[in-house]
Write a protein that binds this DNA or RNA. Structure first.
Length: 343
DNA sequence: GTTGACGCGCACAC
DNA sequence: GCGTCAAC
C-alpha cells in the first residue's frame, strides 16, 4: 500500500497525534531503618544524595563497581548531588558502606516474587492502563503501536567494554527536557501538572514523536513507533529493495575495486582495499570517534597499525592478514585471512 | 567537523 | 547502548 499513496520526497506523515511520554516514577526515599554508613558511622543522606547512592547500591554485586574509572566517575557525579555538609563529610568512596541498602533491595525483589495473585493482577492492570493510554498514536488514519513510550529512569551509565564514562549519573528526564513532535491539527499532549515541555514542534520530515538530549554523550534519544507500524515496515522493505539493487551491480563493484588496486593514486588503492575487506569479511565501515568520549573500538577504515599483522607466509599459506581488534560493542574480532598478493 | 535520525542486537528483569 | 550515514 505504500506504493499506492507515496508521499513527496522526505515527507513521513500528514497527521500525527499522541499523548506524550510516560515519565519514570518519582524517587521514593528509603524507610528510616535502612542505613547508610560512612567510615563505620550511620549517616542520614539528603533525598537527592540518597537516590544516587541507591543506584550504586543496586549494582554492588557487579564487577564494574570495583573498577577504578567507574568508581571515579560515580563519586564525582554523586558529590554533585550532595549538600555542602555531605560533601565535606563524604570524601572517600571506599569509606562508604552500601551493603545494608543493597540487602534491602534484594529483600524487596524477593518480596516482589512472593506477591499475591491479587497484587500481581493490580500491577498488570496498571500496566495495561498505561499501554492503552500512552502506548498508541494516530498516524495518518491508523492507530499505531509506540515502541518505547516509557522514559528510562535515572541510573548509572555503564557502557560497553572499557568505556571512559562508565559510572556517570544518567540524570532524570523531566518534561522541561522534552520536545514533542506532532501535527499542527492534532491535540497536543499536556505536560504533567506544574510542568512545561521544552518545545512543541511539527516536523513531518521525521518519524519520531518525542525526543530529549541525554546527558552522558549529549546524544538525542527518541520515542518512535513499533516495527508493526507502517512507517517502520516501509523502511524495512526499502532496505531489502536496496539489497536487491545491489545484487544487480555487485559484480561491477567487485571488478572496479580490483582495478583500483592497480591505481597510481594511493588513496584510490587504499579505498579499494578497504572495500575489499568490507565485502569479503563484512566488516563495518568504521567511522572516526572522539577520543576519551567513547570506548576505543574500530571498524575497517579506522583500523590502526597495531590491529593488523601481515604475514608473507603463515601455516603454509601465502599473504595472510591477521586482524585483532575491538569492534562494535567492544567485541573482539580475530581472524587470519589469506589474500591476493596485490592486497 | 558536528549532529540528527535512524537500525540493530545483547543483557537483564519479569 | 552503539554504530552508520546524510544533512547541516
Amino acid at each position: 500500500r505504500w506504493e499506492e499513496e507515496r508521499y513527496p520526497e522526505g515527507i513521513k506523515w500528514k497527521f500525527l497525534e499522541h499523548k506524550g511520554p510516560v515519565f519514570a516514577p518519582p524517587y521514593e526515599p528509603l524507610p528510616e531503618n535502612v542505613k547508610f554508613y560512612y567510615d563505620g558511622k550511620v549517616m542520614k543522606l539528603s533525598t537527592k544524595a540518597e537516590e544516587v547512592a541507591t543506584f550504586f547500591a543496586k549494582m554492588l554485586d557487579h564487577e564494574y563497581t570495583t573498577k577504578e574509572i567507574f568508581r571515579k566517575n560515580f563519586f564525582k557525579d554523586w558529590r554533585k548531588e550532595m549538600t555542602s555538609e555531605e560533601k565535606s563529610t563524604i570524601t572517600n568512596l571506599s569509606k562508604c558502606d552500601f551493603t545494608h541498602m543493597s540487602q534491602y533491595f534484594k529483600a524487596q525483589s524477593e518480596a516482589r516474587k512472593q506477591m499475591s495473585k491479587e497484587e500481581k493482577q493490580k500491577i498488570k492492570e496498571e500496566n495495561e492502563r498505561l499501554l492503552k493510554e500512552y502506548g498508541y498514536c494516530v498516524m495518518d488514519n491508523h492507530k499505531e503501536r509506540i515502541a518505547n513510550f516509557k522514559i528510562e529512569p535515572p541510573g548509572l551509565f555503564r557502557g560497553r567494554g572499557n568505556h571512559p564514562k562508565m559510572g556517570m549519573l544518567k540524570r532524570r528526564i523531566m518534561p522541561e527536557d522534552i520536545i514533542i513532535n506532532c501535527s499542527k491539527d492534532s491535540k497536543v499532549p499536556s505536560p504533567p501538572p506544574g510542568h512545561k515541555w521544552k518545545e512543541v514542534r511539527h516536523d513531518n520530515k521525521v518519524t519520531w514523536l518525542v525526543s530529549w538530549t541525554e546527558n552522558i554523550q549529549s546524544s538525542i534519544k527518541y520515542i518512535m513507533l513499533n516495527p508493526s507500524s507502517r512507517i517502520k515496515g516501509e523502511k524495512d522493505w526499502q532496505k531489502y529493495e536496496t539489497a536487491r539493487r545491489l545484487k544487480k551491480c555487485v559484480d561491477k563493484i567487485r571488478n572496479q575495486y580490483r582495478e583500483d588496486w592497480k591505481s597510481k593514486e594511493m588513496k584510490v588503492r587504499q579505498r579499494a582495499v578497504a572495500l575489499y575487506f568490507i565485502d569479503k569479511l563484512a566488516l563495518r565501515a568504521g567511522n572516526e570517534k572522539e577520543e576519551g568520549e567513547t570506548a576505543d573500538t574500530v571498524g575497517c577504515c579506522s583500523l590502526r597499525v597495531e590491529h593488523i599483522k601481515l604475514h608473507p607466509e603463515l601455516d603454509g599459506q601465502e599473504y595472510v592478514v591477521e586482524f585483532d581488534f575491538l569492534g562494535k560493542d567492544s567485541i573482539r574480532y580475530y581472524n587470519k585471512v589469506p589474500v591476493e598478493k596485490r592486497v
